[in-house]
């Protein structure tokens, strides 16, 4: 954990705004630049910033790894599930027109839902990958059967 006061306070102030900006990018992607891919990455950035300043343990409290792992699968499920729903409603796979009485509105709903799925998966994968890299030392300390690499280098 970093003890620098300015960094700690700025990080705490910035994190909610980064999250809010991620939601803006997510749901404003139909009208301006943005969408699920960008929003997912920005959303993950907030947690990574938090982890860099406040340490991995505190970040794990904020974003439990299990929740992130569920998100990895959930996003794909939302995306593919939308396709299945459109099939059940009588359309073809990922044909959003059947989601509403007005075909144009249906397309709009479909695009919003699918982009949300993309955002969930991307942000969850980025958070999980960061935690995996940052937590690797902890995993090694846990296991007795692995010789730490520094000792190996000396031998």
């Amino acid at each position: 954990m970093i003890q620098h006061v300015v960094l700690r306070i700025i990080a705490k102030l910035l994190a909610p705004f980064i999250l809010l900006f991620a939601f803006y990018v997510q749901f404003h992607g139909d009208f301006g630049p943005g969408g699920g891919f960008q929003a997912g990455v920005i959303f993950a950035t907030a947690f990574i910033l938090y982890a860099l300043i406040y340490g991995l343990e505190n970040a794990r409290e904020a974003a439990p790894p299990v929740a992130a792992q569920i998100g990895v699968a959930l996003g794909v499920l939302i995306y593919a599930g939308t396709g299945v729903v459109t099939m059940l409603l009588g359309g073809t796979f990922l044909d959003y027109s059947v989601l509403s009485a007005n075909a144009g509105d249906g397309q709009h709903y479909g695009i919003l839902i699918v982009e949300f799925g993309v955002g969930v998966t991307v942000s969850a994968v980025m958070i999980t990958v960061f935690f995996a890299f940052a937590g690797r030392r902890g995993v090694l300390e846990e296991r007795e059967d692995v010789v730490p690499t520094e000792e190996k280098m000396d031998g």
Binding site: A132, F133, R136, L140, V146, T149, M153
Partner: peptide, 11 residues
């Protein structure tokens, strides 16, 4: 991730 594992295995 593969590089990190290689480092652990080979040093």
């Amino acid at each position: 991730a593969l590089v990190v594992r290689l480092k652990e295995a080979y040093g």
